[in-house]
Design a binder for these strands. Structure first.
Lengths: 283, 283
DNA sequence: TTATAAAATGTAACAAAACTTCAGGAAAAG
DNA sequence: CTTTTCCTGAAGTTTTGTTACATTTTATAA
């Protein structure tokens, strides 16, 4: 079941001239067409009403009405990106579920638009080539670092996650030119992260950062800058959508690295999975 | 510009009895209605055609036609979710980004459909009333537990997150009837979680679980069962989408608890935010 | 070029749908 | 109990979609 506009576009070359005139008009002004009667549309396109019906049938719809319904559906889908919604405090459970979920989805969508393809590519390359990977985050971002660590470990990468300044500093002190340090800070202002990254940078490690979009002290230090959307609402929401979109970026990187060495990675995944299962049996 | 179905749902209580009959029919069978003429619809709902027109006007549409177009738009939006996509290993970075993001969005959407409103309500109530909250998870789920702990702590709830059996067991041993234990396990098979929850249950604590959809040993123990979608693809993907949808559920619960005691929660959030900032300044 | 068939398009009648008007009846107010 | 207001449906009107048939255009071959 294809959308109306798409099915028109696909078959436009195989249409008869007059039907084509109508098809082109529909593609150009779909919003107008759905509010037009067949008579008015026939005037504007300068064809007969019968031709319009024939067009609808050619596209395998029952009639003009159904064609309009399909076009309306297409338009709605196109414009369906709801924006972030303020979560009301007195709503029903239903509205919580809908709003929270909607905002999380929105943050993933937004992240796609602020994420540079080139930087992602560079990040995957750097992480893949790294001897050792250091992952830093404080607070909520610390959990993201740990999540990434779990993933990278499963595909047999040497990495460490550190969620406090002391540990980060220690690790940074021992990094070298072959290593990568990955700093996570939603605000991009976290002092501990800035300092830990600086130490690593001074030692020659490659710096990747994941922050909210826009210039900030953390990303200023980076060789490769990754961003998530910065539209999150008010403090009250806690770090909600932000970490969802951060995890989304982590997933993208993980898939990228895995696919570069697919067979090895799958083998490593199998080994870790079995090992975990065996441990469970014996405990 | 609201969707047709939503605008109906919102105003249904303020409708006249006969208009309401139509509105309810539309909400129940929207797919059918968009292919029905006003006459047929009037037969099925046992009201006059005029009433249907009046309903459309009440909802501030020009007429029945426009109402149908809007409903069609809603349905198209609803079904526009692409399904999960197998992530290809040789794709471009663009396709990684698109596929991974799409799958994460899909998992949030799916979760909405397996999440019971009543159970969510009960969970919020239980968590809100709890003296102490124990949060358990192993591996990837451990991070979810920690995330929830961070959130609950910020709004001044007494809670502990434990990510290994020993700690979980110790905490469980000291729980009582006023307490809540929240077990997270995507598979629902994690032995450590099962045992830790059992101890807590024996001590009279209320058990909430968050697992994938369907019967499983972990959720069998629960007083309140929360589910996330279970459609995740293959082992290879690692725990990707699953944790996104788990976090989405955590967000829902968090918002629910916060809104129950809005003023207190906001005050607590402010205090924690300031405290964290002050620490940063002095370090 | 012209005759003929085939395809494409338009016209006009028809059917069906949407919409309007108005009158009857129920509920609310006095 | 009467009056007023509001709600609803029946019947009539207008608009819209559809069909059947006529006309025009295009393609093909003598």
């Amino acid at each position: 079941m294809n959308g109306g506009l798409i099915s028109i576009q696909e078959s436009i070359t195989s249409l008869k001239p007059s039907e084509r005139k109508v098809a082109e008009y529909i593609i150009d002004f779909p919003e107008e067409v759905i509010n037009l009667s067949i008579q008015k549309l026939s005037q504007r396109t300068e064809v007969s009403e019968a031709t319009i019906i024939r067009l609808a049938r050619t596209l395998s719809y029952k009639g003009f009405q159904e064609l309009k319904l399909r076009i309306a559906g297409d338009l709605a889908t196109k414009y369906s990106n709801k924006s972030y919604q303020e979560i009301s405090i007195d709503g029903t459970v239903d509205s919580f579920i809908a709003n929270v979920s909607n905002n999380n989805i929105q943050s993933i969508n937004d992240t796609i638009s602020v994420l540079s393809k080139e930087e992602v590519e560079k990040a995957i390359e750097a992480l893949d080539q790294a001897r050792k990977i250091a992952l830093y985050g404080i607070g909520a971002s610390g959990l993201i670092a740990q999540d990434f660590k779990q993933k990278l470990s499963r595909i047999n990468r040497w990495c460490e996650a550190a969620v406090d300044y002391d540990t980060q500093g220690t690790i940074s002190a021992n990094l070298g030119e072959q290593d990568v340090v990955f700093g996570i800070s939603y605000s991009g202002q976290t002092k501990d992260i800035i300092e830990s990254l600086q130490i690593a940078k001074d030692n020659g490690a490659k710096v990747i950062t994941l922050t909210k979009y826009g210039a900030n002290p953390v990303s200023d230090l980076a060789d490769i800058k990754l961003f998530t959307s910065s539209l999150e609402k008010s403090i009250r929401s806690g770090a909600m959508s932000s970490r969802i979109s951060q995890l989304n970026v982590i997933d993208i990187l993980y898939v990228g690295i895995t696919s570069r060495n697919y067979d090895e990675s799958v083998a490593a995944l199998e080994r870790t999975r079995k090992a975990v299962e065996d441990v469970k049996k014996h405990v």
